[in-house]
């Protein structure tokens, strides 16, 4: 008799070794690369001095502590938020095509940003964040109207509202004249002008995700297993509100400031599940570290390629790798 295949997963230690190595390289290249070449010895000296020092070579110190460090942290935290948000969305909505933008936070952010840019660029991040939260509210009101666990209704609401906002965005671009280019560039996502002020909301978003991921590990397992969680004692509705609401909030901090960065939230969770299995105590920590390493590496590469939009690079570089792994797995 033919039996069901036995699980062949890579040990999680391999995953940690790989992402930590990538993370280390991403940090080094993020801090060394750029218009001003920075040898490792200078970098270590500036790091040793700390952010408050006033050294002789103030330019190098400013480059490290005022320009590159906030940019690196922004990319690291955004990657961690997008990847772990992707894990949560795919688990709770039980849909492999779900991503952190499924409930419309990206389309809302884009619409808000486009409105602000077309009106002169004031309050850009605030308008984008308001667009993101407003859209989430509308999608949620539409999708949860039926009460119980209707995941497809929530997804459908996200798609429809996203389409409406997409059409609105196209209209704004058409009417924005020479500002249309600024809208397009914003949409592609970039960490180019990050500063320390940008990092604080990102830290808030990251903290929200770390907390809910620590508390709801087993719940995420049950939600992805195919079992009716209610029969196992899970308060499905409350858990879903907390997980999707928390993840959407965290992600909206990222998209409202840095634009729509695709791929990370969709593909990193899939990749980790393929390699390490679906248990969330294994893939959630890996998704935080892996997402951070991936996006910081992509940003370092984007910087060295004359500031290519990082969102474009993540897809161009990561997509084929994912296709290869998918092809290798039977």
């Amino acid at each position: 008799m033919e039996h069901a295949p036995v699980s062949h997963r890579l040990p999680a230690a391999y995953g940690y070794a790989a992402v930590l190595a990538l993370l280390f390289l991403a940090v080094l290249s993020g801090l060394c690369s750029g218009d001003i070449r920075m040898p490792l010895s200078d970098l270590f000296e500036m790091l040793r001095l700390g952010p408050g020092a006033r050294p002789e070579d103030a330019i190098l110190h400013d480059v490290v502590w005022r320009i590159r460090m906030p940019r690196l942290l922004s990319a690291l935290i955004s990657g961690a938020v997008l990847a772990s948000g992707g894990v949560i969305f795919q688990a709770v909505l039980r849909n492999p095509l779900a991503e952190p933008y499924t409930l419309g936070v990206a389309s809302g952010a884009a619409f808000g940003a486009a409105c602000a840019i077309s009106l002169g660029g004031l309050w850009l991040t605030a308008a984008s964040f308001a667009g993101s939260m407003g859209t989430l509210f509308v999608v949620w009101a539409l999708g949860e109207r039926s009460g119980d666990s209707d995941r497809s209704r929530l997804i459908l609401a996200g798609v429809i509202v996203g389409s409406i906002l997409g059409a609105g965005l196209t209209l704004i671009k058409a009417l924005a004249g020479e500002r249309a280019l600024a809208i397009v560039v914003w949409l592609m996502g970039s960490f180019a002008d990050s500063n320390w002020f940008d990092c604080s909301p990102l830290f808030v978003g990251l903290s929200v995700l770390v907390i809910i991921c620590s508390v709801y590990v087993q719940e995420l397992d049950i939600m992805t297993s195919g079992a009716d969680g209610r029969a196992l004692g899970l308060d499905v509705r409350r858990t879903r509100v907390i997980l999707l609401g928390g993840a959407s909030l965290a992600v909206s901090f990222v998209v409202s400031r840095f634009g729509v960065i695709g791929f990370v939230g969709l593909v990193v969770p899939h990749l980790l599940r393929i390699l390490f299995g679906p248990m969330h105590h294994r893939i959630l920590p890996l998704s935080f570290l892996g997402g951070a390493a991936l996006l910081a590496s992509a940003d370092a590469a984007a910087k060295s390629m004359n500031e290519l939009p990082v969102g474009v690079l993540t897809v161009l570089a990561g997509g084929p790798i994912f296709c290869f792994i998918l092809w290798r797995r039977k």
Binding site: S7, R94, Q218, D221, I222, T224, S225, G226, A227, L232, G233, L234, R273, G277, P278, M279
Partner: peptide, 17 residues
Amino acid sequence: PTSDYTVLESVVMGRYP
């Protein structure tokens, strides 16, 4: 079943309550 859990991982979820 909608995810590739192992049989043991799936059964241990019964301990959730």
